[in-house]
Computed example of a mutant assay.
Amino acid sequence: MAGRLSRMGMTGELIAEFAGTMVLILFGVGVVAQVAAGGLGDHDSIAWAWGIGVMLGVYVAGRTTGAHLNPAVTLGFALFRGFPWHKVLPYAAAQTAGAFLAALIVRWNYSEVLAMVDPGHTIKTQTVFSTLPGNGTLPVTMWGGLRDQIIGTAILLFVIFALSDTTNMAPSANLGPFIIGLLVVGIGMSFGTDAGYAINPARDFGPRLASFLTGYGGAWRDQYGDLYWWVPIVGPLIGALLGAGLYQLCIARFLPPDEDRDTVKPSD
């Protein structure tokens, strides 16, 4: 019976991660399709819709799993917060599958508009689904994109660790998703130029695969012809290690325990 309950619990967790990530990508990829193919909105629309997507995805999965929605977040919690290692790959698979299905839905829904704007399904609209260095137009190389992904994801994990640390000033449970959504809006508005702020391997690989299977033959390469698909996977994983590790090193180890936090005041 215990084993059966354990399996049922794991199934529920994977469904929650799948559903939460799917909601995130429906809003995120959907808004890029609307801006790039439909001509409605601008960069601010994209930043805000991605943040809203993250917020709503966290509300969907938060009670069940804490709503990682991102293999980089899952890795960070496994490395520094005691998340079980045997769940890391299943969580990443569920997140990627949710992103893949959401991208297929957006691809289907915007099929007529994408065909009108970009009949050959080229790099012109590839950024609807996956990221490119310099967003496909600016002079940023693959290595610049890797640097950007490491930095952006390090910021994401550093702040997520702060927001989820009950010995720090963590927001109440129902407010946490809203603040995390604002965090993603801020990253998008500050670090969106060099590589489109994927900061999430599932967010990029799932939609990239969906676009490849539906007509985007160049989905794995960037505008220079280099294989780029690995950058938004490797960069965020390295960034997760750095961001989460720096939080533990620079902040967490100096915080008072939960029972002391209301009585300990900052020193003069």
Rank of each mutant, 00 (worst) to 15 (best):
S211C: 09
A99T: 00
P207L: 07
W230C: 02
L249G: 10
L163T: 03
G76Q: 14
G62I: 07
V32M: 05
V184L: 15
A173Q: 12
G239F: 03
T166L: 13
N168Q: 14
G3N: 12
D262Q: 13
L255G: 06
T11P: 05
L157K: 11
Y247T: 00
T125H: 12
D226K: 14
P207H: 05
A219Q: 05
R81W: 02
I155S: 02
L242R: 00
D148G: 10
G181W: 03
G218P: 00
A97V: 15
G239L: 08
I105P: 01
M22I: 01
G176S: 15
P257W: 03
L156D: 00
A244K: 09
E13F: 11
N168Y: 13
M142V: 15
P266K: 11
V231K: 06
D258M: 10
R221D: 12
N200A: 02
F77P: 01
L183G: 01
A93H: 10
R261F: 05
A78W: 02
K124V: 08
D262H: 14
F191K: 09
R203W: 00
G120A: 11
V58T: 01
P236Q: 10
L182F: 09
V23P: 00
W230G: 01
I179R: 13
F27D: 01
L26V: 06
V31K: 09
F254S: 14
T65E: 14
H121Y: 12
I123S: 13
F77L: 11
P71K: 03
D226H: 15
V128P: 00
A37M: 09
H86W: 12
